[in-house]
Design a protein around this nucleic acid. Structure first.
Ligand SMILES: [Zn+2]
Ligand SMILES: [Zn+2]
Ligand SMILES: [Zn+2]
Ligand SMILES: [Zn+2]
Lengths: 143, 143
DNA sequence: ATCCTAATGATATCTAGTATCAAATAGCGT
DNA sequence: ACGCTATTTGATACTAGATATCATTAGGAT
């Protein structure tokens, strides 16, 4: 997903209607900088019902437009997917920034582990928690 | 965590009281076979308040006695940790069985990825979803 | 046995998400 | 442009999962 019109095209391609509501949701996705809760998204869209906010997030997730981020405490955030492809997350526990990464080497090791255990792997999630470069820079200058 | 008394020792070592409630929770952990919801745990302990069930699960989790399992849909299950050490999960989407595994190779690849990205890694979770040997065996004999 | 603090249970409250259903509207054929 | 119909929406109510409050209970040290 590069720009805002891609999401609308994606809706159309999959037989979903391009409604003013979905356009409005799509627009705020680009204004909300970081990961957001659906409550925050809903607040940013006063005219739009809460249920529809949940529905639209679910739909956009299914279409790969946004992805779900699992925080360490188990709570969920959502964020524009920089790419629709399989990826994993760096989650900065300092400022909340989430960055995607792709690592074929890790995925290979995961596949090998599954094969060795006779586990028919269908999906996997990998989330890394710590201090991102976004925050470690600030810290080093402070001290 | 090998046997039921280890958890009690662990409580004591960390300055927590060994109460009848905590003993009762610990006992059912060994009776509940697979991963459980806190609701299920609470139901198995009629004399014990719901809030205390949540509190005790949280405490046991902090002590490494049980570990949290994230299902694909984001819901949580809990399970006796077979070891207090760092590990990852095979989660059978067929029957719900969760198996722990340790893989130094994956962890190495994860650390390398974090270092390369200048990410100060503090924790990570890796969950594999698919059909475990528990269920694939049954399927092959049926067909 | 006494004392003090940690732990508990009941209750209320909160958050995240879903179910229902009548009203609105996108997109299509004309 | 117009009307039709299935999709989408919003309001509302509801559920599940979890936390906050606080008076009461009980562990365990002395
Ligand atoms: Zn992967
Ligand atoms: Zn950061
Ligand atoms: Zn690991
Ligand atoms: Zn299984």
């Amino acid at each position: 997903m590069r720009n805002a019109t891609d999401a609308l095209a994606c809706l159309q391609e999959n037989g979903y209607r391009i409604t003013t509501t979905r356009q409005a949701v799509n627009d705020v996705l680009y204004r909300l900088k970081g990961p957001f809760t659906i409550e925050e998204l809903s607040d940013a869209l006063p005219g739009i019902g809460r249920a529809t906010a949940f529905r639209t997030v679910r739909l956009f997730q299914d279409l790969g437009i946004i992805c779900r981020v699992n925080l360490e405490d188990g709570s969920a955030r959502y964020q524009l997917a920089s790419t629709g492809e399989h990826h994993h997350h760096f989650i900065c526990t300092e400022c909340g920034v989430v960055t995607e990464f792709i690592d074929a080497h890790i995925d290979q090791a995961v596949n090998r582990q599954a094969q060795g255990a006779n586990f028919e792997l269908n999906a996997h999630t990998i989330d890394l928690y710590g201090i991102g470069s976004c925050c470690s820079k600030k810290c080093s200058t402070n001290s």
